[in-house]
Structures are given as structure tokens and as C-alpha cells.
Nucleic acid binder design. Structure first.
Lengths: 198, 198, 198, 198
DNA sequence: AATGAATGAGAGTTCATTCAT
DNA sequence: AATGAATGAACTCTCATTCAT
């Protein structure tokens, strides 16, 4: 799916600029001009590389969710035990106030769109599937280790884990207080543990 | 509190029209014209009653969250036991596919804005405070009854309960499948119970 | 021409309010609402009495110029000598900073319109004719008294006298300095005297 | 003073179109669309070059008054004698019915605004200062030559000269008769001469 | 006689998109 | 490959006017 080999780097640069602009300004205020400004290119370039504003945003969601998935996947795989994996997953989902804020601001914009527009929903679905894959991996290993309840069905439990993560981070985002980040992370971890434990 | 000389009823009519329009079309596509169309009034009337598009939206969030809070509060208070209250709270938060879809679509739009714009954040904070009040009521009663863990601190536990509710409903919304509504509700209930139980 | 006997007083009230509003806000910013606010009546009343916004303004110019003409006419007729009449005329045209400012602001708005719209031009022409009548009266008396040049033809000299008055007051208005009012009045008087003297 | 990257020529084209549109239609009737139509560009271009309608008008007044000043200045400097300079100044201020009409229509609109809005007043003040400079030059030379009264103080006399010019041209404009242009010019010249003569 | 709710045409402005260079 | 001038559709907002009460 490498459409523009030569200029793949510039596409990344524009996507990252779009991410920054979107995070700062929000959906209604972001324009091709502000994206171009953040990328330090001309307005025409954004069009040249993506064809339309909509295409930039779709690809941004794709890129963002893929990056998050990869990061979380990698973090979990480094750990040998279920407990370690779960801890790594939550740590990965709560990298810190700055990163969580910029990502969740943008992600909420996308979720709002995804609730109405299929193309965004499909991309988000792939993200959710990846999250479920990670959760399932952790859960089944924990069941084998005997630390998680055997009765839990991965297909129904996995979404709840992501629900708790997203729900906690949204709550934190709305408090707008960096100091509380650690507490929300801890609350999230405790909640997930209680849901999974024997 | 008689703030408006102008017919309070027409204001409600316009707010409800705005809710419908926003739910259908989303933030970027909703215009004063589409709101007016849904309310079956002229474009000028919306301005006449609210002064600006922004004012309509702010008041819509206020109205929506107040309505939800009142409904949940009432449902919980009808029940005498902690178990009954918790069930009533979750039932109230999961009234059904149609209602949940229309509300959460709009609510996600507002959350995205609230992450950047103080006036929306403040309104949402009042909503969260009401949710926390309900959760605390349920939790402390359950602790007295002995069905919930005594060690749980209301201040840190309450937000997690709403996080699970919102998280589960967002997951469901993204699946876009009415059939799954009951299952997500059940998962949510189970998760909250596990978080609270002794 | 007394169209509404009973309510002639309210018409005056509205016209005066329109004058105040226009003087304060200028042509582009004055609305029926601001006129109604100044008159302390409802917006509908202004329409009811005048039929349209344009009609208010046309009648305002008529009323204003008639009032000025009458005042100047009266002042001049009180004086027996040509010198006294001229002094009275200039005094009457320079009643003071506050009055000159409010009138000339509005009058400039009307002159701008009069340069394009016949109905305003005709009203202004009647005003100019009255000014010319006064000037002619002063001039011919002065010629009889031997203090003004016999060679001056009233028809060509009269407009110049008003030109000097208007020109000086516009210059003063643009300086926006109340302190200079007396100096501009003196300059105006001197200039007119030099134009008329033997 | 290279303030604009965008084609300076196109800016001039739009300013001239704005002048034509304003002269024809007047302040209340001139819109970005009519300006764009006169300039034979799209409505968006006017915004693109000036940022706002207000900015077009402010720059128009600046451009117009600068042009008039330059023209009058040049005309006066060509003449060696005070009498010649004065004649050249008046000739320059009375270029003919068509030019005087279009300029004074627009200028009256600006004077009305200048009486309330500082930015317009400041621009007009610069114009008045230039007029005063010219008048002072003519006056002091005439005093040296012995044809103008030695007692005249330039600072108080100069504004009166412009007052007579503006006053006469406004009187002429209100008559709306091209035939009278020459007579008003003559009257103006005579009046100024009488004010200055020994 | 008086009100002000309702209308909708039209204003200024924004911005994705196009395209000549 | 890159630019930014140009376009015009669509937006929010204003306001004279109408009209039921």
C-alpha cells in the first residue's frame, strides 16, 4: 500500500502536523492552512499529497491508531507474565499527561465522527480489534497462570478492558489536571484487575 | 429564575431540534439552517432566541446533561437497596439502542469540544459531579449493607463507575449494532459489580 | 401637511431620538432598534408612525434643516444693522461645540446621501435657499448702509457665505477639539467680512 | 516600503473599483460584491487582498487623499508666482464636473465617517495638513511679493482656504448642475483672493 | 395604539479546492 | 514538485419589515 515511495517522509511530516494542529485547534478550527503552517509547507502541498482535507484526516486516524496499537503490542510482548503484560498494557495506554491529552483530544474528535461516518468507524474498528487481541493475549495467559478467572470469555471481556481504559482517560482529560494522571492510571489498573481476578 | 421573556417552550423546541440535527449530522455539518428546519421555524428565529449558534450548543449541552442527571437520580432514588440502586443506575444509563445512539453521538461531539473549551468542560464537570453523587450514594449504602468492599474510597471509585459506563457505551456505539446493546449493558453491569464487590 | 394631528408630538419624539442615534452611531450603525431605544418606544412604533426607516431619515433631514433655518432667520431679524445681522447669523451657525458636533455629524451623513439621492438633495436645496435668503438680506442691507461692496451680486455671493460657514465647521469637526471652536468661528467671521467688505 | 507580496497592481485595480462603486452607490449600498464586480474579480479576491471590507475603505481614503495631495502639490510647484500658484491650486481642486462629482461624493461619505471614527479622521488630518502646507507656501510667497496681507497668520488662514474650496464644491455638488461648475470655481477663487489680498 | 415574535433576503467572511506558473 | 492567487459555495449573523395579538 506504499503509494508514494519517494515522498512517504513528507506525508508523515504532514500527518504529524495535522495531528498537532487538530490537537490544538479541534475539528472545526483546523484548516488546510493551519495544517500547512504546522508542517511548514504551502497549502497546495497538503492537497498535492492527500487530494483532499478529508483524506488527510482519514489517513491521520489510520496512522495514529496503527502507531498506538504497535506501541501497545510491543510493550505487552516484552513481558513474560500475565501480570507484567497487563501492567505494560496500562502503562502504554497512560504514557503521561502531555501525550494522553494530545492523543485523546484528537481521538475524541474522531470518535464523534466515527459514530456517523463508516470510513472512520472501520478504522476505529481495526484499532479496537487490535486492542482486543492484546487483551485476549493477556487474559488467556493469566487464566493459564491461574491469576485470572477461568470463567471469563475473552470475546466479551476484552472490550470491557478497553472501555475502562478509554473511560478513565476521558474522565481524566475532562479534569484537565496533570497531577491527577497517576491517580487515574492507578484507578484504571485496579479496576481492570478487579474485573479479571479470580 | 425567570431569565427569558421569550417563550420558554419555543426555546425547548429549538433545543430539541438542535439535538436531533446534531445527532444526525454531527458538529461540522449542523448549521443554523438545519436546526431551524428540524424545529420548523425560520433561520432567524434561532438567532432571535439564542443570540448565536454557539449559545444554542452550549445551552443544549446544559439541557441534555441536566436531563440525564435528573433521570438517573430519580431512577436510583426509587430503589431502596444498593443492588437495586446500582441496577437502576445502569438501566437508566442504557435506556436502549436508539436513545443511547442519539445521545452518545451528540455527547462525543461535546466531549471533543470540552477537551479544549472551558465553558463546555465546566458544564460537563457538573454532569460528572452529579454522576459521582449518584455513585457515591450507591456505594456507601452498599458498604453499609455489606455487599460492597469497605475499603473503597468514594472519591476515587465514583469516577471509575462512570468511566466504565461511558467506555462501554462508546464501545457499543462504535459497533453500530443494536443487537449488541443488551450484551454491552450486561458487561458493564458485571464490570461495575466486580469493581465494587467485597 | 399635518398628517397625524393627534400624534404629532410622538413623531417629534421619534425624530429627535433618530437625530441622537444618528449623531452617535452614524448611518451604517443606526437601526430601527437603536432609534426605538433612544425614543424609549418599541421598534414597531417607529414603523407605525413613519412607514419605513427611509421615511424617518427623510423626515429627520426636513425637520433638522427647517429648525436650523428658523433659528438663523429669527436671530438675523432681531438685529437692525447689517453688521449685527451678520454677527447674529454666524453666531447662530456656531452655537457651540456640542451642538455643532451633533448637527454636522448628522448633516455630513445627509450631504453624502444628498449627492446621490434626489429626495435628500431637494430638501437640502430648500435649506440652501433659506440660507441664501438670509445672506441676501444681510448683504443688500449692508450695501445700502455702505459697509459691503456694491458690486457684489447676491445670487453669486450668498452661496459663498454658506460655503465658508460649512467649510469652516467641517474643518473644525475634523480637528475634534472643542477648544478650537471659538477660533474657527472667528476665522469664519473674518473670512465672510473680507469677502463682503468694500 | 514593500508591504505587500501580493501584486500591488491588483490592489490598485481593486481600490479604483471600490472608488467607482462607492461614488456610484454610496456607503450603505456598496458591498464587497459590487466592488468585486467593478474590479471584474470574484468576491473572494477583495478579501484576499485586503482582509476585510473596512480595510478596503480605509486604504481607499488613504490612496485618494494622497493622490489629490500629490496632484495639487505638483500643480502649485510648477508656478513661480504667488498668483500663479493660487490659480494652479484652485484649478487643481476644480478639475471639472465629472472628477469633482465622483471625488466629492466619496469624500463626503468619508468625512461623515471621519467625524466618528478615529482612523478615518487621522487620514483626513494628514490630507488637511498637506492642504495647509500648500496654502502656507502660497500665502508666504504672496506676502513677500506684497500681494497678500502681511498681517495674515498662515496657521489660521490656511484652514480657511481649504474650507472655502470644500464649501464651494459641496455647494456645487448639491446643485447637481455641470454648467455651474465654472461659476463656483470663479466664486471660490474670488473669495480666496479677497480673504488674502492686502 | 402598541408590541415584539417571526421572517428571510442579503451582508461580510471563511475556506476547500483548482490551477497557472 | 511546489506555490499561492483565485474562486465561489456556504456559513453565521443583521435587520427592515410584517403581522398576530
Amino acid at each position: 500500500m506504499v503509494r508514494y515511495k519517494k515522498s512517504e517522509e513528507k506525508r508523515k511530516q504532514i500527518l504529524f502536523a495535522a495531528f498537532q494542529a487538530l490537537s490544538e485547534l479541534g475539528y472545526d478550527s483546523v484548516t488546510l492552512q493551519t495544517i500547512a503552517d504546522h508542517a511548514e509547507v504551502s497549502k497546495g502541498v497538503v492537497h498535492y499529497y492527500f487530494g483532499s482535507k478529508e483524506a488527510v484526516l482519514v489517513e491521520l486516524l489510520e496512522w495514529l491508531t496503527a502507531k498506538i496499537s504497535a506501541k501497545e503490542q510491543a510493550a505487552v510482548q516484552e513481558q513474560p507474565t500475565a501480570a507484567g503484560k497487563l501492567k505494560a498494557y496500562i502503562d502504554s495506554a497512560f504514557p503521561g499527561p502531555a501525550k494522553n491529552r494530545s492523543f485523546y483530544r484528537v481521538y475524541l474528535d474522531f470518535l464523534a465522527r466515527a459514530s456517523r461516518i463508516p470510513v472512520y468507524r472501520e478504522i476505529n474498528q481495526r484499532f479496537y480489534d487490535n486492542c482486543a487481541r492484546i487483551s485476549t493475549e493477556v487474559l488467556t495467559l493469566g487464566q493459564k497462570e491461574g491469576i485470572f478467572a477461568k470463567a471469563l470469555i475473552p470475546d466479551t471481556t476484552a472490550p470491557v478492558i478497553r472501555a475502562i481504559i478509554d473511560g478513565c482517560l476521558i474522565q481524566w482529560l475532562m479534569k484537565d489536571d496533570d497531577e491527577l494522571h497517576a491517580a487515574y492510571k492507578e484507578s484504571c489498573y485496579e479496576a481492570v484487575m478487579k474485573v479479571l481476578r479470580v
